[in-house]
Design a protein around this nucleic acid. Sequence first.
RNA 1: GGAGAGAUGGUCGAGUUGGUUUAAGGCACCGGUCUUGAAAACCGGCGUGGGUUUUGCCCACCCUGGGUUCGAAUCCCAGUCUCUCCGCCA
Length: 424
Amino acid sequence: MLDINRIRSNPEHVKEALLKRMEHVDFTELLQWDIERRQLIQSTDEKKAKRNKVSGDIPRLKKEGIDISDLLSEMKALSDEIKENDEALREVDAKIHQFLSSLPNIPAEDVVAGGKENNQVLRTWGEKPSFGFSIKNHVDLATDLKLVDYERGAKIGGNGFWVYTGMGSILEWALLNYFVEQHLKDGYQFLLPPHILTYQCGYTAGQFPKFTEDVYKVETGEANENMQFILPTAETALINYHRNEIMKEEDLPKKYFAYTPCYRKEAGSYRSEERGMIRGHQFNKVEMFHYTTPEQSETAFEELVVKAEKLVQGLGLYHRVSKLAAKDCSASMGKTFDIEVWIPSMNDFKEVSSASNAYDYQARRGNIRFKGANGKSKFVHTLNASGLATSRIMPAILEQYQQADGSVVVPEVLRKWVGKEILR
RNA sequence: GGAGAGAUGGUCGAGUUGGUUUAAGGCACCGGUCUUGAAAACCGGCGUGGGUUUUGCCCACCCUGGGUUCGAAUCCCAGUCUCUCCGCCA
């Protein structure tokens, strides 16, 4: 949600910024509604002031025995006018709210316009693995080593689901243990939130009302305001943890992380090269989340990116960091860096973490504030980053660590949980 | 799933036969007086959002959303959440 005051006082500036990610931006109607709204408030408030005053006088007049029947009918008429005004105000408020809540966040100054093609690779870490033999893809490796059962996954869950088995389950769980261990070491608070969330959570995160079709809805199937859905990422839960709260400035920044599976419909997004675990309907992810003051948010962003990178580096995986162009950032975010890991069989990098700064966009939607030293409350900034999603780390490990005989070396940091150096 | 109780400003808590309580009072917190300093005592301040002709005035908010009324924290309807007891249950 953008600040209407910001649009009112500088519409051209906001428009220019939004055009980096939108085709058309037109505030003409919005600004007209805004004027209407304030006129309505003024006239209604005047009427209400009069009503309050007369209502206060009535008991006294009654006591003095004065006939007030004319006054009462006059007040009845005034009361009706107030009702009409309130109704009109509700309508224009709704229009304004609908308009504002459908606008995406304003991209940061240094974020370039356009889509994916304008993404910029900031740095690449490690060396591109080279193999002296013909490599297997992760689906074959996982199947041959009996780490993942794709067939039975599809049998019991449908297309896009899999089952971790044997050492595959252990490796998956080792990854999660590794992530949790690192975040705890950095002093982050560990939350395990509900996996089923209310509509309001999706709204605050900025996923609703636009993307109700991307999530699995529970019970009613209707995308109304009473629906519940299964979370597509723990971010949706974490942003709502402090919804409608006023925090103390000295308690900021607040740093959380959570583990949840993530459930996504991914309708129509199936591509044959994304077989296996690259794009499933359910995957495991540890998510990091910060609540900060506006002054702290840039530092927090750096911290999140570095933390996500370190996790990938700890695993020894060849990867890169990209800065996304405006249209490639999700709607709530003003700036996003992706950490992408190398998948040899695809000859491409795939996202394993997306680190974003939402600035005050989500905080406005969720009414999340802090009280500053001057006693004034302001909206917090919220940031999130995966740390990490396993569903692309596992393929990267299998493929990057594979050997000529079809076995896979276990990354050093995972061995204390896996209990083996080589999977064969 | 059944029965009952409850939800008031940071916190406790009054008000629930509708109208000088259009939210008292205590505590906490902030400032001041007093004091060598502190405590105590006393004095003052102390919610959020919005509008505006902006050191002022006005409006809204007593869980949420409707309704009755000249007037609603108070009455009516619907819903949410919390607590207690019972039942069921991984």
